[in-house]
Simulated scan of single mutants.
Amino acid sequence: MTDGGVRVLLYHVADDAAGIEAAYHEASRRLAGVPGLVSDELLRSVHAENGFVVVSSWTDLAAFDAWEQGAGHKEQTAPLRPYRDLSLARPFGVYRVAAAHRAP
């Protein structure tokens, strides 16, 4: 059974860990209260010190699409934009939850 949720992964590269962490916290502050946004996390790679991923969880694809197409999208995520991993053909991925298990 799925929760119908959507996860968005944004890939970043940063030699300045403190800088990307500050940018993440600022972007998260700006995103507070966005309809459909459930949570977000900044993950740091254990294999590449400068590799980071921001994972956001959304209630559904419609909520994510509405936010992404809205006027505030670019301003809200602006602090993280300089860290985006542009070496990738697409520095982000959008995934629909296909199956999920919850710990008892």
Rank of each mutant, 00 (worst) to 15 (best):
M1H: 14
T2G: 03
T2Q: 15
D3I: 00
G4Y: 03
G4D: 12
G5N: 03
V6R: 01
R7V: 02
V8H: 13
V8Q: 04
V8F: 07
L9Q: 10
V13H: 15
V13N: 14
A14D: 12
D15C: 10
D16W: 04
A17L: 13
A17E: 13
G19I: 12
G19L: 12
I20F: 00
E21M: 06
E21Y: 01
A22P: 07
A22N: 09
A22M: 14
Y24T: 07
A27W: 01
S28I: 04
R29Q: 10
R30V: 02
L31V: 07
A32Y: 10
V34P: 06
V34W: 04
L37H: 01
V38E: 11
V38N: 05
S39C: 03
D40C: 02
E41C: 00
E41S: 09
L42C: 10
L42P: 11
R44A: 02
S45F: 06
S45V: 03
S45L: 06
H47F: 02
A48R: 14
F52H: 05
V53M: 08
V54S: 03
V55Y: 06
V55T: 07
V55R: 04
W58S: 06
L61V: 09
A62W: 10
D65I: 10
A66E: 14
A66G: 10
W67V: 05
W67C: 10
W67K: 15
E68G: 02
E68L: 02
Q69T: 02
G70F: 07
H73G: 01
K74T: 00
K74N: 08
Q76W: 04
P79I: 00
P79L: 03
P79S: 02
P79E: 06
P79F: 00
R81W: 06
P82G: 04
R84N: 07
R84D: 03
S87K: 14
S87C: 11
S87D: 12
L88P: 15
A89H: 07
P91T: 02
F92S: 08
G93M: 10
Y95H: 14
R96A: 06
A98L: 12
A99C: 14
A100G: 08
H101N: 09
H101I: 11
R102M: 06
R102G: 04
A103G: 15
A103S: 15
